[in-house]
Amino acid sequence: MLEIKNLHARAGDALILKGIDLSIGAGEVHAIMGPNGSGKSTLAGVLSGRPSFEVTEGSVLYRGEDLLAMEPEDRARAGIFQAFQYPVEIPGVTNNYFLKASLNAIRTARGEDELDAMDFLSVVREKMKIVEMPKDLMGRSINEGFSGGEKKRNEVLQMLLLEPSFMVLDETDSGLDIDALRVVANGVNHLRSPERSMLVITHYQRLLDYIVPDVVHVLSEGRIVRSGGKELALELEEKGYGWIEGAAAP
């Protein structure tokens, strides 16, 4: 589904990704772990098309197409979804209006009919239950005044609504207490299917107890320095990132 080759990217003058190779098949869940500054969020940003990152070398194919040539909205319409680490607050635009516009843009791209207000309401209510989202958040401005947990629930709610094919979770666990983490992970697991793939980026192993990966990669200084099964995450947790960095040194 996703084929990353020799990916180099920078933010401003700093080269952050220094040659990533990664292949994710349909239905697979890959986790990316790594210390702060290793390039995890840059990788997520490059995949969703954040303008502040510049790809200097390498390629990303999504279902055989050149993902890097696509605008952010076209990526979303093709089924890419990133749950952001820090969802932005947008005053003046209600969550309800936004989610409906977003869902209808995606549905139109998939060749489905747009939902009217009533149909949208019944769909969104059903998804809100899954992430235990308070009803009043729909009438409020996007993420404005939401708690950290509410913002993350809102991200997963969008994911549930849009039913993407490829999901990038960028430190979705950060700032969540254990109950919120369980709810959010449960929402994500709702979407697991043989047709969907995920890239779960996290600093801690804890999230991977709930969203169990098929493959774990360790990112360090812009490169994948080790890959393994889910037990690699446990090993990291036990030994710390110093162990990997030491091992990767010449």
């Binding site: 954040r50 952010p72 909205e73 990526r75 952001f84 932005v88 947008i90 995606i106 791209a109 849009l162």
Partner: peptide, 13 residues
């Protein structure tokens, strides 16, 4: 940032 957020959800620029 807000513009990118909306676009990343499929909304036309």
């Amino acid at each position: 940032e807000a513009l990118f957020y909306l676009r990343s959800r499929g909304i036309d620029v």
